[in-house]
């Protein structure tokens, strides 16, 4: 059996589940064997990108519809973490948002900035019934 950890979660489209998913992301960071940097920081960063991606799916893509679901998958191999967050929305141009950097006094616009800054690669693509935000982080030394 290949040494890979996979977690697949579906939760109702409600922000009260952000902490649950974020916590799972943190716990996964603590299972990494080959990681010598600041593990507490890595755990926070994974919690943060999961929280931002899910909040985006819940409030923007799924328009806070409580009858919808958010599907999150995490796949951890020895040297890579892949997070996918599926939504049921119309999609958006993630690169256009990347270009827009929030001014310090802006109240919005930091979520995608966090995702782009803290992960190594980010894509947002059409899939069955909506879109998927895929974020990868490499742990190769």
């Amino acid at each position: 059996m290949k040494n890979q950890l996979e977690v697949d979660i579906k939760v109702p489209n409600q922000t009260k589940y952000l902490s649950l998913i974020g916590k799972i992301g943190e716990d996964i960071a603590y299972t990494l064997k080959k990681f010598n940097d600041n593990r507490e920081e890595l755990a926070y960063h994974i919690n943060l990108v999961l929280t931002e991606a899910m909040a985006n799916a819940i409030t923007h893509a799924n328009k806070n519809d409580p009858n919808k679901q958010v599907h999150v998958s995490l796949c951890l191999s020895e040297d890579n973490l892949c997070i996918r967050v599926y939504d049921h929305g119309q999609g958006f141009d993630i690169n256009a948002i990347k270009e827009h950097k929030a001014a310090p006094e802006d109240e919005h616009g930091r979520g995608i900035f966090f995702i782009h800054t803290l992960m190594d690669s980010v894509t947002y693509k059409k899939c069955e019934n909506g879109h998927v935000l895929e974020m990868n982080k490499s742990f190769k030394s």
Binding site: L18, Y44, L48, A55, P104, E107, H108, R110, G111, F114
Partner: peptide
């Protein structure tokens, strides 16, 4: 833990 919306509320 704080996310972008938490920071946004403080900026507001």
């Amino acid at each position: 833990f704080i996310d972008s919306s938490g920071l946004g509320a403080l900026v507001s």
